[in-house]
Design a binder for these strands. Structure first.
Length: 271
DNA sequence: TTAATCACCTGAGGGC
DNA sequence: TGCCCTCAGGTGATTA
């Protein structure tokens, strides 16, 4: 389940293979994704050279002279570099064939992802222009979070998972960051002080950086562009450990649902 | 404007 | 073994 570290790991994995390469062919086996793949997408891509591979939030941006291919991996999507002899497995929905003979293969069992073309400045696309800052940018810190939280009654966990506040913090890392910062996930965002927000911002950055360093978190479906799993799951302190003991105080970890999401916390360490 | 809920989708896992 | 049900989760759309 790709969150920001998984998307960044994917970006770093595919970039060396596709930057500077021309698209020869596009094979669409299943156009029904979150939004249907446009009929004219292959025609727009063929003949274009991939100038760079960027990322904004959990969106990958394949930039060409004519426009940008925006890719979202949804819940279960992955991108892999394969050669033309590689077998096509179930849920391998799209191949972007390059002049090197390699292919960028999009696989997505649950089809929550998307491939969209835009000819405009990609950051002005309706999906991207209202997004909050990148969590690893200088713009994102405790002061920023504190200002954004004024008069907000929503729970802190839903608050930091809101892409208009900060992008890329999904359920796994929200659980982990709140545990590390000692903040109860149900606490109202507007009732947390500046000092605690400063600690939370530091923890979000630290956890995301560590997850990127080890190649993301592998739970069920995620593999990186080489087809290998990430290793951050071995570092998870609360997520997926409900009923187990807190690593700090040995109390039993509790599980609740917030915003329809599984939320695990220690009632002794988080207030 | 904010908060809550729904919808999309398939595979894994548990219960019978 | 096979069937059925629940759960997992990102995010835009809809509703209150």
């Amino acid at each position: 389940m790709p969150e920001l570290p998984e998307v960044e790991t994917t970006r770093r994995g595919i970039s060396p293979h596709i930057e500077g390469r021309k698209v020869d062919r596009v094979i669409v086996r299943q156009p029904r994704l979150r939004w249907p793949v446009a009929d004219d997408l292959p025609a727009r891509l063929i003949g274009q050279t991939v100038l760079s591979v960027g990322r904004r939030a959990k969106y990958l941006l394949l930039n060409t002279e004519a426009g940008t291919l925006i890719i979202h991996l949804g819940m279960s999507g992955s991108l892999r570099i394969v050669d033309e002899t590689a077998n096509v497995a179930a849920h391998d929905h799209i191949d972007i064939c390059l002049d090197s003979g390699l292919r960028l293969r999009y696989r997505d069992p649950r089809r929550f992802g998307a491939l969209l073309w835009t000819s405009q400045e990609p950051l002005q696309h309706s999906l991207l222009k209202h997004l909050g800052p990148e969590p690893l940018s200088a713009e994102f810190d405790g002061d920023y979070l504190y200002q954004q939280a004024v008069n907000r009654s929503v729970s802190i966990k839903q608050f930091i998972m809101d892409g208009r506040v900060v992008v890329g913090v999904g359920n796994i890392y929200a659980n982990e960051a709140l545990f590390s910062a000692g903040i109860h996930p149900r606490r109202s965002a507007g009732r947390i002080g500046l000092v605690r927000y400063q600690r939370l911002a530091v923890m979000i950055k630290k956890i995301l950086l560590e997850a990127i360093r080890v190649g993301g978190t592998s739970l069920r479906d995620f593999v990186n562009s080489d087809g290998n799993p990430g290793y951050f799951s071995q570092s998870l302190q609360v997520y997926g450990r409900a009923g187990g003991n807190c690593i700090k105080c040995q109390a039993k970890l509790r599980e609740i649902r917030l915003g329809q999401r599984s939320t695990v916390y220690c009632s002794n360490c988080q207030h």
